[in-house]
Write a protein that binds this DNA or RNA. Structure first.
Length: 612
RNA sequence: GGGGGCGUGGUGAAGUCUGGAGUUCACGCCGGCCUGUCAAGCCGGAGGUCGCGGGUUCAAAUCCCGUCGUCCCCGCCA
């Protein structure tokens, strides 16, 4: 491709171009000075090409080449030629040719670099983010940005083919405190009032259904003001989808289409479809989690039958009180006594009262601190239940079912989870409960209050077992997204609010505008949202979503490059009707932090020259 | 809010447990040599308040206390 400054992309040059006069522009990836000849590796977005400068023939170009340093932005002009016999570089796509140049121009020099722009060293991440614009010249980060773009393009293509409308929803919206903390933005025109940034476009996409859009998607930026993790940022991007006259199957099929297109693009892989499916109840029973990593077995085994008549009081007591005795066969761990005790400590850290370990001996007997409390029949039945073989370590937890499952599920991951993401195990987890059960038996809603229950009467009469039309997509043990069939009947919506403990008055004041919309012929509808950062990071085998976000923030919400968040001028706060609390002022004074003076920057403004 | 890891020339690491001169390695940077290299090679050089503050000690990168930053995790994330 040709543009104003260059005629060709460096990475595009091939033998076919030999004899062509070209002008390339890009960055100095490397400069090799051989005294009588300079080799430059010129890099642009398309790749790298070797440039040769011979000062004997072109003195001025030689002088310029001598001044060049890493990451200078330059342009060069000359003729493409074959590389001499024996100097072809098979590592480079452009390795059969080089450009013999007669002209070298520095478009823009570079200061000495804060770190080397290559993939050699594992540079401190804060430093990388401080100079993200240099960081993204590194091959790995550049490839991640490219992959992200390709992923989004694949999703758009898949949905455009199905005649979806891409609609933008507002990012300054009414706060509906529910779930995560909102990021708030003060209003200048209505002092004391605040917008919220959307945690998701949830209600707006439902309004689009009411508005007759029928098939909507958006690459939507979402904001949740909670603490950061490797897979969580303050702002993140979702593929947000909703369809009218849809049920669960329509959603699952559409999302699979978009995700499979993304995987095909990034991994050159045709996924088997439909994706595997499992109910929430099955996931909890077999894997102890609602987002199971199904790339490996080591499934939870319910031992209630084995110990139904046991004389071992610890197990008998738990079973009598309605708890769960379950375990995993962790395989041949080869752990010492202290290693096994370490697992007990780990289980206790996770909240279990204890953990029983048993090692299967060669003769099929069990070596364990509690073996003497178990009958021979029980021991045999235990080995049978696990399908265990000699050398296997069995880990058993007896506790309230949710706790026992959570602990075993976590131990299973820690002991069995494969490294890397070579294998992609997509899984739909369906039939989520309406309520999740807390550690003390209390119920709290598992989803937002617009999720349709399978049966609203059941939701009222037996909330602890009621199921909703909600589903998650899981990849290798990570939650990629979730969705549901929505409530489209205003009466049902009112009842669900009531059952969730949101009174009519409260519902009216918080969601009245939405409840009113539901009364104007709302079509049945359903939807989903896929976390694009998470999907791309897994497909790129990156352990951290920051690696696939162009300008991420640190765990404390700081952007090291721009140093945001930052103080603002008192004048700005005054306009917004905001006063900092005295103790906040005091802390800022102690830290020596000072807000900038408020200045109206204009052409010729003296402030521009004052400092920096 | 809590638990843990890390912080040493521009970059990455070793040194810290067991205190003894800012020591070492690789890369980069500066200067020089070199006409076929390709993350070139050779010679020479510069560059550090060991995150910051306090304490213990004859002596602190090293031990103790505090603090800041960063990463991972728990809580939190309808």
């Amino acid at each position: 491709m040709a543009d104003a400054v260059r005629t060709h992309d460096a990475g595009s040059l091939r033998v076919d171009d030999v004899g062509t006069r070209v002008t390339l522009a890009g960055w100095v990836n490397a400069r090799r000075d051989h005294g009588g000849v300079y080799f430059l590796d010129l890099r642009d977005a398309s790749g790298v090409a070797q440039v040769v400068v011979n000062p004997e023939d072109h003195a001025e170009a030689g002088e310029t080449a001598h001044r060049l340093r890493d990451e200078f932005c330059i342009s060069v002009s000359g003729e493409v030629r074959h590389r001499p016999e024996g100097t072809v570089n098979p590592e480079l796509p452009t390795g059969e040719v080089e450009v013999a140049v007669d002209r070298v121009d520095v478009l823009s020099p570079s200061d000495p670099l804060p770190f080397q722009v290559d993939d050699r060293a594992d540079v401190d991440e804060f430093r990388r983010l401080e100079f993200r614009y240099l960081d993204m010249r590194r091959p790995k980060v550049a490839a991640n940005l490219r992959a992200r773009s390709e992923a989004i393009r694949a999703m758009r293509r898949a949905l455009d083919e199905r005649e979806f409308l891409e609609v933008e929803t507002p990012t300054l919206i009414r706060s509906t405190p529910e779930g995560a903390r909102d990021v708030l933005v003060p209003s200048r025109l209505r002092q004391g009032s605040f917008y919220a940034l959307p945690q998701s476009p949830q209600l707006f996409k439902q309004l689009l259904m009411i508005g007759g859009v029928e098939r909507y998607y958006q690459i939507a930026r979402c904001y949740r003001d909670e603490d950061f993790r490797a897979d969580r940022q303050l702002e993140f991007t979702q593929l947000d989808v909703e369809g009218a006259f849809w049920g669960q199957e329509d959603v699952l099929d559409t999302i699979e289409e978009a995700v499979a297109a993304t995987v095909a693009e990034l991994r050159h892989l045709d996924l088997d479809r439909p994706f595997a499916r499992m109910t929430y109840a099955e996931a909890m029973a077999r894997y102890g989690t609602d987002k199971p990593d199904v790339r490996f077995g080591m499934e939870l085994v319910d031992l209630g039958g084995v110990f139904a008549e046991t004389g071992f009081k610890a197990f008998a007591g738990v079973l009598e009180s309605g708890g769960l005795v379950a375990g995993i066969d962790a395989g041949d761990l080869g752990l010492s006594r202290s290693g096994l005790d370490g697992l007990v400590s780990r289980a206790q850290e996770l909240g279990a009262k204890g953990l029983v370990w048993m090692v299967v001996e060669d003769d099929g007997s069990l070596r364990s601190p509690v073996a003497k409390f178990l009958s021979d029949d029980e021991q045999a039945a235990l080995v049978e239940a696990f399908g265990a073989t000699a050398g296997d370590t069995l880990l058993i937890v007896a506790d309230a079912a949710p706790l026992a499952r959570r602990v075993l599920g976590e131990l299973r991951l820690e002991l069995g989870r494969p490294e890397g993401h070579d294998e992609l195990a997509f899984l739909w987890v369906v039939d989520f409960p309406v309520f999740e059960v807390g550690p003390d038996g209390q119920l709290f809603p598992a989803h937002h209050p617009f999720t349709a229950p399978v049966d609203v009467d059941e939701m009222a009469s037996s909330p602890e077992t009621a199921v909703s039309k909600a589903y998650d997509l899981v990849l290798n043990g990570s939650e990629l997204g979730s969705g549901s069939v929505r409530i489209h009947d205003p009466g049902t919506q009112q009842r669900v609010f009531e059952i969730l403990g949101i009174g009519a008055e409260e519902a009216e004041s918080r969601f009245g505008w939405f409840l009113r919309a539901l009364r104007y012929g709302t079509p049945p509808h359903a939807g989903f949202a896929v976390g694009i950062d998470r999907l791309v990071s897994i497909l790129r085998d990156e352990p951290n979503i920051r690696e696939v976000i162009p300008f991420p923030k640190t765990q404390s919400g700081l952007d090291p490059m721009t140093r945001s968040p930052a103080l603002v001028a008192d004048e700005q706060l005054r306009e917004l009707g905001i006063d900092l609390r005295p103790e906040v002022r005091e802390r800022l004074d102690e830290e020596g932090a000072s807000a900038p003076e408020h200045t109206e920057l204009g052409i010729g403004d003296a402030e521009l020259d004052a400092d920096e």
